[in-house]
Structure formats: structure tokens, C-alpha cells
Amino acid sequence: MSTLFEKAWSEVIRPMFKRPDRVQVAALCWRGEGAEKEVLLVTSRGTGRWILPKGWPIDGLEAPEAAMQEAWEEAGVEKGKLDEEPLGEFRYDKELDTGGVAPVSATVYPIKVKRLADQFPESDQRRRKWVPARKAAEMVRERELQQLLRAF
């Protein structure tokens, strides 16, 4: 009886009470080719840890376009070639302003950077750094994002 209950709990009941992930878009900004390929990371405003530029969907923009907008606002990507096919996704727990935590799923869109601006909307709130993708994988906290970066 307990095995039947455990199966029902894990497959039917528990999923009904699980809140769905919130959705974000992320930009994997890159430059170079082969061994010279690098990824652009930015610091988070709240914790200062290294992340990809990312944010909530934007009304009136498709997901890839919203990722491009985040790349501009958070990293100063002024000009780049956006790949509208997602590279993948990663999940993480976002710390909310209210003190709570929400599960988030971020879809990652690659952008080959052609030009960075010195001044951009969040230039006074973030640092940015070009690093090889493998090094970037060591600098970010999210396990699924680490895997994406290693595969990139």
C-alpha cells in the first residue's frame, strides 16, 4: 500500500502542487573563433557573482529579441548577430526582492558580439569580463549553465 501511495504522490499529487518555473531569457554573448572563442560574463547587481545577461520576457518582443535587449542593457552589446535558435536552457533559484526564492528557467540565445559600448543602461551597476567558455563555466554557479558553457 505504501508503494502505491508513494507512486501516486510522486507522479500525480506532488506535481499538482509544484509551482511552475518562472521564465527568463538569457544572452550568451561571444566573440572569436576556435581556441580564441570567448564568452562575456557580467556581475549580478545583488550578489556580484558572474552570470549571463538575462531577464524577464518583454512585451512586444519575441524571446530572442528580448535576450538581445538584455545583452544591451546589462552588458552593452551595441551590435551583434543574434541566433534565434536557443542554445539550451538552465534552471536556477532567483532571490526575490521580497526575500523569497522562485524557481526560474532561462532559455539561452547566442549572440556573436560585433561591438560593445562603453556606456550602457546598467554600466554603473555591473562589471563585465571576456573569458574562455571553459573558464566561464568555472565562474558561474548554476550547474546546467556550466554544462552549456562547457559544450559551447
Rank of each mutant, 00 (worst) to 15 (best):
Ala136Phe: 06
Met139Ile: 02
Leu145Asn: 01
Trp30Lys: 13
Lys81His: 10
Cys29Pro: 06
Gln125His: 15
Glu122Lys: 12
Glu122Phe: 07
Glu38Thr: 02
Ala151Gln: 14
Ile111Lys: 03
Gly88Trp: 12
Glu95Trp: 12
Tyr92Lys: 11
Pro20Arg: 08
Ala102Ile: 11
Arg128Tyr: 08
Thr107Ile: 09
Phe5Gln: 04
Ala71Pro: 03
Met139Phe: 01
Asp118Leu: 13
Met16Tyr: 11
Val108Thr: 01
Arg126Asn: 03
Pro103Asn: 13
Ser105Cys: 13
Pro132Cys: 07
Leu87Tyr: 05
Leu52Asn: 03
Arg143Gln: 07
Ala26Tyr: 00
Glu144Lys: 05
Lys81Phe: 11
Trp30Tyr: 15
Gly34Thr: 05
Gly32Ala: 04
Arg22Pro: 07
Glu122Val: 00
Asp97Val: 13
Lys18Pro: 00
Ser2Asp: 12
Gly32Val: 00
Ile111Arg: 03
Pro86Ala: 14
Leu96Lys: 15
Gln69Ala: 14
Ala151Met: 09
Lys94Trp: 11
Arg45Thr: 14
Glu95Val: 13
Glu78Met: 03
Ala151Glu: 14
Glu122Gln: 12
Glu70Thr: 11
Ser105Leu: 14
Glu33Ala: 12
Gln147Cys: 04
Glu65Trp: 05
Ala26Phe: 00
Glu85Ala: 09
Leu96Asp: 12
Glu36Gly: 13
Leu116Ala: 07
Lys129Ala: 08
Arg91Asp: 10
Gly55Gln: 04
Gly88Cys: 11
Ser10Val: 08
Val25Asp: 00
Gly80Leu: 00
Gln119Met: 06
Gln125Glu: 14
Ser105Pro: 00
Lys129Gln: 14
Glu122Tyr: 07
Glu73Ile: 15
Leu40Lys: 06
Val140Ile: 03
Leu116Lys: 06
Leu28Met: 14
Gln24Asn: 12
Pro20Lys: 09
Pro15Ala: 09
Lys94Cys: 11
Met16Gln: 15
Leu149Lys: 07
Arg127Pro: 01
Glu78Thr: 02
Leu28Pro: 05
Gly34Asp: 10
Pro53Arg: 11
Gly76Trp: 05
Trp9Leu: 13
Pro64Phe: 08
Val113Arg: 05
Glu11Gly: 08
Thr107Lys: 07
Lys79Arg: 12
Gln147Val: 13
Tyr92Met: 12
Ala151Leu: 09
Ala75Asp: 00
Gly32Phe: 06
Glu89His: 15
Gly100Glu: 10
Gly46Lys: 14
Glu11Cys: 11
Ala67Trp: 08
Val131Tyr: 06
Phe120Met: 05
